[in-house]
């Protein structure tokens, strides 16, 4: 205990961690004032209409982003997955095939190691403010994630099923649809639905850098110190995440 405190101390100093700051008079007053303005959430009809439109846009960004991510992930998975290698049937994978598979894997790692927030900042510069930047950001990061995890799921199954089919002269895609997919379809779908739920949450964050949706609204209300609007948006956001969570767990139960 004492040892860990001693170890922790330099870290706390380095991060300028001074919790008492939260309570000193200078910061307490504006905080309380802002919190007080939040109390009756803004519910006039103009604003509610806007909120509903932006929530819908948030769901749309997440869904379109996942759809594009699948366009990246599915071909990349098919190319990179080792169980579908024909040359590995009889010994070692041929060098060209190995390089191609490894190359695709590296691209996937690159895509997924850049957070979607950074991609969004980049795309806001390229395509301007708005949902398009959010969709592209989600598509790239999630494409990398889905591609990598799909390949891992497919390789965790029984490789001999596809191997037997390939050895008897099936094409790679036939071996995929008859030997690999039936073993893993439920797991793949469940992971995709879970990622869709994550995309909804992250598309709200992306709004803060100007990529549209609820987040962008939240950002501008925050900047105008419109406490009522902020609390409405937060409530709607919590509700949205709750619904997405519910839908995704229901879908996964159906598939299980």
């Amino acid at each position: 205990m004492v040892g860990s405190l001693i170890l922790l101390w330099p870290l706390l100093v380095a991060t300028e961690f001074r919790p008492l700051q939260l309570f000193d008079a200078q910061s307490r007053e504006p905080t309380l004032r802002f919190l007080a303005t939040m109390v009756p959430p803004a519910i006039h009809s103009d604003f509610l209409q806007l909120v509903i439109r932006e929530s819908w846009r948030t769901v749309a960004i997440a869904t379109a982003g996942i759809a594009l991510a699948l366009l990246v992930a599915l071909p990349a998975t098919l190319v990179s997955v080792r169980v579908l290698s024909v040359s590995a049937l009889s010994g070692r994978m041929s060098p060209a095939a190995f390089l191609l598979r490894q190359g695709v894997r590296w691209v996937l790692i690159l895509l997924r190691s850049v957070p979607e927030l950074i991609w969004a900042l980049v795309f806001v510069r390229v395509v301007g403010l708005g949902p398009t930047a959010g969709v592209l950001a989600i598509a790239l990061t999630y494409g990398g994630m889905l591609g990598k995890v799909y390949a891992e799921i497919l390789e965790s199954g029984d490789p001999t099923v596809a191997q037997t089919l390939l050895r008897n002269g099936s094409s790679r895609l036939q071996a995929f649809f008859y030997g690999v997919l039936p073993q893993n379809a439920a797991e793949l779908t469940s992971y995709t639905v879970y990622r869709w739920e994550c995309a909804i949450r992250s598309s709200v964050v992306l709004g803060f850098v100007g990529a549209g949706g609820l987040g962008q609204q939240l950002d501008s209300s925050m900047k105008m110190f419109a406490g009522g609007e902020v609390s409405t948006l937060l409530l709607v956001f919590i509700l949205l995440v709750g619904i997405a969570d519910f839908v995704s767990s229901w879908l996964r139960r159906q598939l299980g």
Binding site: D158, T160, V161, Q163, T164, R167, N168, G169, Y178, G179, P182, Q183, A185, A186
Partner: peptide, 13 residues
């Protein structure tokens, strides 16, 4: 040609 392994690996579902 057709090679049938001893225990045919078949996807369970």
């Amino acid at each position: 040609l057709f090679l049938a392994p001893q225990t045919p690996p078949l996807p369970p579902r």
